[in-house]
């Protein structure tokens, strides 16, 4: 299958330090990839390069075959590259319905309409109802975000991303900060993501990585040191070295 998302030879240095060093990867529709790596491996920089918040020194980012390296972050969102945030970024005094409604309107290019209330636009509301219903947020749809639990805010982040109908979804630690009791709901939401969507998840929680990903990429010191099946990742010598004293070794000792 043709890749929907492709990064080739991406490089970025701050001063003399190569933070992203010749990174290449490709994803096809339906891929479930986890990007892991120790702290300081360059995951955040990689995300910023891909989303267009930073521009690379060299290399290329392609979306659906089109080079988007010169296109800004907004343009990439419009072309189907959507991200969620590690710390939820929601509008505290707005409701889930308003969040998803705004995303739907934005996607359809109707967010500049200066008349009419979207609550009365049946096409928008049908989609809002459906999306929030799927994620179990229907009963909260008219509450303010500041009044709903953090786990539910996490789900809302996913709902907003999905409302934009992405082709490629970057999930930045989708379960970070969520109490253990609520992670099941989030994992369920991740399992229910559309089948043709390419998902790249950045995650620290290895249990979640193993349950979600069909492929794991390990980033260390700005370079990809492993790209393969989840089952092989803990056995890889270079990965162990990179994680010295952390998860891979710890599990061995235990």
């Amino acid at each position: 299958m043709n890749p929907v998302f492709e990064v080739s030879n991406l490089r970025k240095a701050f001063g003399g330090l190569a933070v992203t060093n010749d990174v290449s990867l490709a994803m096809a529709p339906g891929d479930r990839v986890a990007l892991i790596g120790p702290n300081g491996a360059g995951k955040t920089t990689f995300v910023n390069l891909v989303t267009g918040n930073l521009s690379p020194d060299s290399g290329e980012v392609r979306l659906g075959g089109e080079a988007v390296t010169k296109i800004d972050a907004v343009g990439r969102v419009k072309r189907g590259l959507v991200r969620s945030f590690q710390v939820t970024r929601l509008f505290q005094d707005m409701t889930p319905a308003e969040h998803v409604g705004l995303a739907v309107l934005q996607r359809d290019g109707k967010a500049k309409r200066a008349f009419g209330n979207f609550l009365a636009m049946s096409d928008v509301m049908t989609e809002v109802d459906e999306l929030l219903g799927k994620l179990g947020l229907a009963s909260l749809m008219h509450r303010r975000v500041s009044e709903i639990a953090y786990g539910q805010q996490r789900l809302l982040e996913i709902a907003v991303a999905l409302a934009l109908k992405p082709k490629v979804l970057l999930l930045d630690e989708p379960a970070a900060g969520v109490p253990q009791s609520d992670t099941g709901r989030i994992e369920q939401a991740l399992a229910d993501l559309p089948g043709d969507l390419a998902v790249l998840m950045i995650e620290h929680d290895m249990d979640l990585v193993f349950r979600f990903a069909k492929r794991v990429i390990v980033l260390a010191a700005g370079a990809i040191i492993f790209d393969g099946l989840p089952a092989d990742v803990t056995r890889d010598a270079r990965v162990r070295e990179a994680y010295l004293g952390s998860y891979a070794n710890a599990s061995h000792i235990a």
Partner: peptide, 28 residues
């Protein structure tokens, strides 16, 4: 009254709180 609760009014309220979030939704 029409303006502030139209989609455009909602977009502006969003921009006030977090312009970066609006950009991540594809808005300018």
């Amino acid at each position: 009254r029409f303006l502030v609760r139209s989609p455009f009014g909602m977009l502006c309220r969003g921009i006030r709180q977090d312009p970066l979030r609006i950009r991540a939704m594809g808005g300018s």
